[in-house]
Design a protein around this nucleic acid. Structure first.
Lengths: 179, 179
DNA sequence: ATTGAAATTTTGCATTG
DNA sequence: CAATGCAAAATTTCAAT
């Protein structure tokens, strides 16, 4: 899947003029696994010709459904074998500019504000325990940070980008269970 | 960045015969942001010719540093606006086949065993609170699952794939601070 | 949405520094 | 040993059915 810089229409992020149909979902499902397929191969997988899938992929990009195409690299191979989830608690409103600035660090892969007994959740990939210690020290230096709790990953069973399931949200109504 | 299915040498995951030099890191940094660059463009960014970067990218793929190229899609656009981190506690050894089977669900984006006051950490993307309730119910149905704790993301400040920082692990030795 | 064809791009190879 | 320039092959992408 190539450049598309010259062929795409100018508008980025326009509301999806057309809903995402099952064929789109199959395309997305394929692309979240292998985005380096040729349009011919992708077309084969979903039963469409190359120009047809190209047209759809272009639409999915223009409408913002496909945000980007990125390379997934091995954390250990680039010297960061340590994966940690860090819960941060703050006094008062936690969304300070200083905390937000952590997003610019290459170690920080994710940062969310969350409900529950923590204010902010950070996913960080680090070189070793010394780097983790340094990161935590930096965290505690920030104004308002009252406590942290760290969860270090021992093994990762799956780790991937958002998956476009073929099925639409089948939020099954919960059966009532008598105890 | 194209197919490479026919041109790559057969071996997958061989030990990196050569260390990752700064140029490799710059290539990786570019590719984790935009993997749909042409080799000509990528070469311009790192100051190399197209065949030269192609050679390096091929090596990085063959050695397993680049695991895959994937499309990042918008969770909300595919009907899953709800992001949740779920801590799972189990009685006894938590890594049961039943729990591992959850990796096959499209809702489950990540699953790690972790240190700390939880056994397993799951990152799931869901349609709505009903879907979350259903997911938790399913979790509690598994043998050995004793409790869960859920953190729902209110807003995400950053969310990306592992970043190849230009700098090598600069785990600065921590200064001793007197209180 | 498909077919066929043109324009870019990828990509192997020989050459050179 | 790695980068460069050229040429062949493949892919993207346009126009018309």
């Amino acid at each position: 899947m190539p450049n598309d810089k010259n062929t795409d229409t100018i508008r980025q992020n326009a509301g999806p003029a057309r809903p995402i149909d099952p064929t789109d979902r199959r395309i997305l499902a394929a692309l979240t696994t292998r985005a380096d397929l040729s349009y011919a191969e992708l077309g084969q997988e979903v039963g469409l010709s190359a120009p047809a899938v190209h047209e759809r992929v272009k639409r999915l990009k223009a409408s913002g459904v496909i945000e980007a195409t990125v390379a997934r690299i091995d954390g250990a191979a680039i010297g960061k074998p340590l994966l940690a989830f860090i819960h941060v608690n703050t006094v008062g409103w936690g969304k300070t500019p200083e905390l937000m600035a952590l997003c610019d660090l290459p170690e920080v892969e994710e940062m969310h504000s969350v409900t529950g007994d923590a204010c902010v959740l950070i996913k960080a990939r680090l070189a070793d325990s010394a780097a983790l210690e340094g990161f935590l020290a930096r965290l505690y230096d920030l104004p308002g940070v009252s406590s942290t709790q760290t969860y270090v990953a021992l093994s990762s069973f799956t780790e991937r980008v958002p998956q476009a399931g073929i099925t639409e949200s089948l939020s099954a109504p919960l059966p009532i269970r008598r105890r």
